[in-house]
Amino acid sequence: MAAQTNQPMVEARGLGRTFRTRTGAVEAVAGVDFAIQAREVVGFLGPNGAGKTTTQRMLSTLLAPTSGEATVAGCDLRRDPVGVRRRIGYVAQGGSTNPNALCDEELVLQAQLYGLGAEEARRRADEICARLDLGDLGARQIKTLSGGQRRRLDVALGLVHGPGLVFLDEPSTGLDPQSRANLWTHIRGLRDELGTTVFLTTHYLEEADALCDRILIIDHGRIVAEGTPDQLKRRISGDLVIFTVGPEAERARGVLAGRPGVREAVPHDGTVRVTVERGEEGALPLMRALDAAGIPVASMQIARPTLDDVFLTLTGHSLRDQPAAEGRRPS
């Protein structure tokens, strides 16, 4: 049974995985609950080791969960793994090709393993190659491809059979800006033209921002936030209002800190950076307060926080930092 219209494409209920290692148990995913609707492009963000790959491997039947359950593309993950496999595509984080094989061979074989006939498989392989700019590489041995070309082949292998739901684990790692833009176009096309549901992990915040309808943020095996890119930015960090006040920065901080609506005021390099709920409404009263205190304001700027700021606020570390790094932002 394919997914019904109103049923989520992916529904995880307390889905968790604990690895046993020599040094003890590692709780990679600590019982997550979330749902992905049909035709959604959902981004999965989190620092290294947060549990993104483990979650995707469980949902794609590669790894048995140690707790919880999930429904994927209308099939129960534990009871009907073959049904799940039939309906999904999966692109692994770490590559998926034999260096001695030819591109064509791998693509056609993969499509045939999904049950397509030889001719149809051939046709789909050519089509996906054209879409992902692999057109003239078909007869090449994979070990002769560049890293980015190989990554595009990985993506092509996960999509060649035209699945209704795809899991992409860092699909754009190692791609140049043009290939990445091309991949984005392709992913949007999958959703808009074919109604494909996409669940992708990424470390590129601009990618999540530009491509995803919704974002899930995971840290230490727990979902710490979810929402549209805008919602997340607004809800978690508020806006940043930056006043350029020269040598008066420290005094400006004293004036602004503690005023209603101000979460935080930090002097920084001739400016004072104030975090407020909504910048458009919050800025003017602050400006007047500075005026009243006799502090001349040379310029004022309202900045929406980036997802990177969201991240910092939520997890205490930046997405680009090492997982254990201290948060840079005073809290």
Binding site: A92, G94, S96, T97, L113
Partner: peptide, 16 residues
Amino acid sequence: AEMRYGVVERMRVTPA
């Protein structure tokens, strides 16, 4: 070696 390349996983995720 095939596991290291990710080929085995790529095949295990198909319904084959």
